[in-house]
């Protein structure tokens, strides 16, 4: 094997990665064509009807209900995760930075990221759902809020560990400068550390949002599987990921194409969210 072959092998492997990504986009688009042809691209996106009738004529599919469900659950999850992940980030990245206790908490929070989605779903179903029922929040215990609570726990590690990194990166000299003017730690955090690391922290939450949008199993088990726009936080619904997980197995024809179309939309949404998040990180570190 000559160097030339070796170098081209490396290049080919990078090309394959590019091809995989391009191929994913292509295959999803191709699979989605029948659905878009039937309902129109925007007609599909903006219709909240999901009727899988037996006869061809009654079939009607649209993504809006699931887009709504996805946005509701993931944004709510982000809001719930905020008051926990931000303290963790400051605990690890500032208050106890470099200390053993920060390592322990960081490790515990990281383990949260390791728990499989389906185990979260089980826990949500058998532990959280009864709690929601007994609080009288909803009769069945399923729904947007239940899903968001579990999603919030699932994305805490992503939001916290990345934010902690940006908090840690704030130069010590800036903090010392502020302390030398008589500021307390709270004042330094509020006026120096937070503004300096803000765009980084923001991007961490954008990436965490991306996680929440695409999370499948736990949501599938908790959201209640109804194919309409949720009418409130206690209502049931479906996310883009959960409708695919629920109905892909038995689907064919137009329905399969519609599910693939939802997959394409989900792929594009997460790609855009991740793209923005990464772009902000890049901007921040310059």
């Amino acid at each position: 094997m000559s160097d030339k072959i070796f170098r081209s092998l490396l290049l080919v492997s990078a090309l394959i990665l590019l091809l995989i990504f391009a191929g994913m986009f292509f295959s999803l688009s191709k699979g989605a064509v029948p659905a878009f042809r039937e309902f129109g691209f925007f007609g599909f996106i903006f219709s909240d009807k999901w009727i899988s009738g037996t006869g061809q004529s009654t079939e009607q599919y649209g993504a809006l209900a699931f887009i709504a469900g996805t946005l509701m659950t993931s944004i709510l999850a982000l809001l719930i995760c905020l008051p926990f992940s931000l303290p963790v980030a400051f605990f690890v990245g500032e208050y106890f930075r470099g200390k053993k206790v920060a390592g322990v908490l960081g490790g515990i929070v990281d383990l949260l990221a390791g728990i499989p989605s389906i185990v979260y779903g089980l826990w949500g179903f058998y532990a959280l759902r009864p709690l929601i029922q007994s609080l009288g929040l909803s009769e069945q215990g399923f729904g947007v809020l239940t899903s968001s609570l579990v999603l919030a726990i699932m994305i805490i590690p992503y939001a916290a560990s990345l934010s902690a990194e940006f908090i840690r990166m704030v130069p010590q000299e800036l903090k010392e400068g502020a302390y030398s003017l008589g500021a307390t730690r709270a004042e330094v955090i509020r006026n120096i550390i937070f503004p300096t690391s803000f765009s980084g922290i923001f991007s961490a939450y954008v990436l965490a949002l991306g996680r929440a949008i695409g999370e499948t199993m736990a949501v599938t088990m908790l959201i209640g599987n109804t194919s309409r726009i949720p009418r409130g936080l206690m209502d049931t619904g479906n996310t883009m990921a959960s409708i695919i997980a629920n109905q892909f197995g038995e689907a064919d024809g137009l329905k399969l194409s519609s599910l693939i179309a939802i997959g394409l939309l989900l792929f594009l949404i997460t790609a855009i969210v991740n793209f923005l998040g990464r772009l902000m990180i890049k901007r921040h570190s310059v």
């Binding site: 000299e173 800036l174 400068g177 502020a178 500021a183 004042e187 330094v188 300096t196």
Partner: peptide
């Protein structure tokens, strides 16, 4: 300090007043 450390998120004006603004 050894290395100049003006606060990068503040204007020149606010940097001078930082001792008051911070607290």
């Amino acid at each position: 300090f050894q290395r100049p450390n003006p606060f990068p998120t503040m204007s020149i004006y606010d940097n001078v007043l930082a001792g008051y603004k911070l607290i």
